[in-house]
Write a protein that binds this DNA or RNA. Structure first.
Lengths: 242, 242
DNA sequence: ACGGAGATTTTGATTAATCAAAATACTGAA
DNA sequence: TTCAGTATTTTGATTAATCAAAATCTCCGT
């Protein structure tokens, strides 16, 4: 029905819209660079998809998903994120490599297969990076997340999301224990050094990371009493490969 | 590297070659109808793939895989059949529906993911329909199989393969218990009625099926002593959906 | 209000895969 | 051997997706 090309346009536009937060239309140029194609191509394709009712497009102003387009985009996103979690949980791939795999598989898994995966995983709410997985109706859970680089010394937080598909960064985060579910205490923040110091509940070693890296880590605030507890509700666990 | 189109050409040609048995080249028209495309398209594509060293092509005579092409075709076949088995064993899909799914997924699963699936399934030798799965080196197990329609009354056989991707037929076979692993005794063969009568070890009901249907079922002969035993060695079991 | 700078759109070409239909080549029967 | 019938190949067109580069628009700063 829809080519993987159009699915990619829909998915990228959805992600860009979510990032923007304000309901402003996305310039075709942004979409083009997100898809790594030339601006002219994006314009042409967008006009076609607007014709088909998937997007609203206003020349020189930008593009926005219609209700229909957004629904389809959420389907693609659901496929992508469920597949990512499946690859980690069931096939034991490393979370740093599943994004690439899912980029391809998201266009190949049928509704039927996806439903089986969804059941097998227990209808999870979040993918291995902590991104919310749209349910079959296209709804996604939303959470109040803070950026790790903005946390104050003394605060206790739990890692909820790591925003970055770069495998090298994900391997780094994994090595440092900065994966969804990890419990941290902020020890210090040094604006001059552009760094933040924190300790992991399950490690004696304090950890120092730069602000730029910390910015990619999203957390939820906990009551400051350090107490051992299970994973946050709804949080899809990250199981390290066997 | 290779488009799913070229992968399909390779796979279909391999299957046609295997069916032919003699090493004769496959006419482009046969390939075309197997791929459900027009003959002209097949000719054009085949010439291109011959250019790339994947096939040997002689005008008006036919086409044959080169060693390189055959290796690639075996890879595709391996992906297809491993995925089929995975869908049945792990995700619990019905064997009548996995062929269609695998037609798409075979072009999307990476070597890495495939290796995980292979390990998870225990490096199986046969797919849910009893077709052999090439191993990572491209080798496939071969067996001496007889056609059920040619078995003699009194013989005891075990179903090894059901040759037909038609979902309706597969559902029929499943309903009648004619799935790989099933143990049967041939009761009678009636040329006039064009039918064969047999009994399943695990069922009291004798079963009568037409020759055309029986032809699609491949079996191995057993010592005629009816004895309870496990699945044949190397035979991938068919687990019904939960 | 004007003029650039930078973004956006348009245009013309390209590639892969396909079809339809015309042209051509085999093959077997008389 | 010849020719008719069938299979194959060739040719010209089409569609989806893309790029490069030329044309055009917008908007900001003076």
């Amino acid at each position: 029905m829809h080519s993987s090309t159009t699915e990619n346009y829909l998915k990228h536009l959805l992600l860009l819209q979510q990032r923007q937060e304000d309901g402003a239309p996305v310039p075709t140029g942004r979409l083009a660079s997100s898809l790594e194609i030339t601006p002219g191509t994006a314009t042409v394709m967008v006009k076609g998809m607007a014709e088909s009712g998937l997007m609203d497009y206003e020349s020189h102003s930008g593009v926005r998903l219609t209700a229909v387009g957004e629904r389809l985009a959420l389907d693609v996103l659901r496929r992508h994120r469920l597949v990512e979690l499946f690859l980690v949980q069931v096939l034991g791939l490393d979370w740093s490599e599943v994004h690439e795999e899912a980029e391809v598989l998201e266009h190949a898994v049928s509704e039927k297969v996806l439903e089986r995966i969804d059941i097998l995983l227990g209808r999870p709410g979040f993918d291995p990076h902590g991104d919310p997985i749209p349910n079959a109706a296209g709804e996604l859970a939303s959470r109040q997340l803070a950026r790790l680089d903005e946390c104050e010394p003394g605060q206790r937080v739990q890692v909820s999301q790591v925003e970055n598909q770069d495998p090298a960064f994900l391997r780094f985060a994994d090595a440092k224990g900065l994966t969804p579910g990890a419990l941290l205490t902020i020890l210090a923040r040094d604006a001059m050094a552009d760094a933040i110091t924190l300790s992991r509940d399950d490690s004696a070693e304090p950890l120092v990371i730069g602000t730029a890296a910390a910015r990619k880590v999203r957390v939820v605030h906990l009551e400051s009493t350090p107490q051992r507890k299970g994973r946050a509700a709804g949080q899809a666990g990250r199981s390290k490969r066997a």
